[in-house]
Design a protein around this nucleic acid. Sequence first.
DNA 1: GCAATACATAAGTGTGTGCTTATGTATTGC
DNA 2: GCAATACATAAGCACACACTTATGTATTGC
Lengths: 104, 104
Amino acid sequence: MIENDIFKALADPTRRAIFEKLANGRLNASALRDGMDISQPAMSQHLAVLCQAHLVRQERQGRFVNYEVDPDGLAHIAGWLAKYRAYWPARIDALKTLLKDMDQ
Amino acid sequence: MIENDIFKALADPTRRAIFEKLANGRLNASALRDGMDISQPAMSQHLAVLCQAHLVRQERQGRFVNYEVDPDGLAHIAGWLAKYRAYWPARIDALKTLLKDMDQ
DNA sequence: GCAATACATAAGTGTGTGCTTATGTATTGC
DNA sequence: GCAATACATAAGCACACACTTATGTATTGC
């Protein structure tokens, strides 16, 4: 079940940090490690988990493997969230502010 | 960190099932167990995790404790998701619906 | 071909997680 | 008060998870 893979992948703070980095642009595995205090195998394993959850996708470029955000996983979360839109109105004001802030 | 609690809470399929049940209306712990093949303590523990993540909130009513979806947790996920809006266009169809729902 | 670089995989280890059984606490109705 | 009901907490256990070190695989430049 993809939903399970997604939430399990995001349950780890290190993986969320990796994902956040990739949200600023594609990077290879080594570049991702910069300033992260994480071993090379650990990074490789985390990226594998993110890939399996379709949160990240890879593309080999010669000796390097570039990673980037896969919209597929995000869309799945959005879809999951949409199921509970009945409960959003109670917080819609905060969300609208948040979305407006994101726009700037 | 609340974000961590939220994703960890949702990383378990049983807890997502409980959450889904509560999305259809408030229920007490016993009613939640119906048709779920889960022990009473297990249910209690799952509910505690969901409460700590602000995905669910409780309200004692005499001998019963009613549980219901807490919009707070959902709003947090929506906020997290909003950070990656740049990657949504690739899936614009599903997401336009989502944003429109948010606006209402 | 061969050394160097970039990354993946294997195997082992400590810790966290979800379950169980047993027991504790709170509220109700008599 | 006391039995019954509804739920929470404690303790223990099997398993999953995130890490480590060691090794394997792929690509580059000479």
